[in-house]
Amino acid sequence: MSISCGLLPVLNLDAGEHQYEMSEYEGAKARWCPGCGDHSVLTSVQRLLAAEQLIPDQTMFVSGIGCSSRFPHYLKTYGFHGLHGRALPVATGIKLHRPELNVFVVMGDGDCTSIGAGHWLHAMRYNMDMTVMMLDNGIYGLTKNQTSPTTPQGFKSNTQPKGSWLPPMNPIEIALGVTNASFVAQTAEWAPAHLYATLRAAYHHKGFSFVRILQRCPVFTPLIFQQAVQDPARITLMVHDDGVVAPELNNIYSSQVHHDPRDLAAARAMAEQTEKIHLGVFFKDPSKPRYEETRRVAPHTPAERVALLDKELDRYAV
């Protein structure tokens, strides 16, 4: 269980005896479309919460706006369903003030890489300890079929009916370019074993764990990863003991590359390759400074603060 000693006094003593079942993390019934990849991510997350036995009241899911941002409603933890693109500033504030909480962030591709792009870059640089999922289906779904930064070039949408004008943004390349980024991984909704193993690795990383989850929107982009779904050879798994460990996938994905997640140059080279989809941990460096640790301040009692302030005011004495 990952809880800090400072919280022990407020915990129910029986908690140690209690084994949380997956069902105890279930919130409202998920209302995503049938076949939506979000269901798969939700299941993996509930599995992770149960596997790690995270205490629901010490766990926080923060989201923005979009289909995927409904996520917190479907969990029985604390949740903050805020503004489009702005989950990360809220999560930053929560983690700064309450570093002991387990913080997860769920965003969509438009949320994270378009309207929230500025926050995304800076949050990666702050490198606060949170697990950050970008559910990337290459389209705006909630608002009905508008092009997002990760929409494939040529894809026809309601806002770009002649086809997306520009080559899509590559979020992994961008993440790997951010100073002080400490964990960058990619997984896919149609490979649940890999998805779960990746989220688990992300959760265990101390720092900002950025996971791009490739998804299909069953309504607007059902076919964007069709070839990769049907032909596992189009996918290359990055394997390493310090990366995603999922031996059960060896039979499905024969194309594998041994990649040390500390090797940033190799990670960037692979991120640039678009003919194959790379799944696994591109980069990981737990030694990067974490903002909430760097900024940690010792708490003071009201009496201490009042005494100090009285002294401070004397600096302005007439």
Partner: peptide, 22 residues
Amino acid sequence: MVHQAEDEIAACGVAIGASYAG
């Protein structure tokens, strides 16, 4: 502490997150 955010919007969001959590 003073948190210098990446922009005005984030500064407000961080304050809201912190207020919400404590």
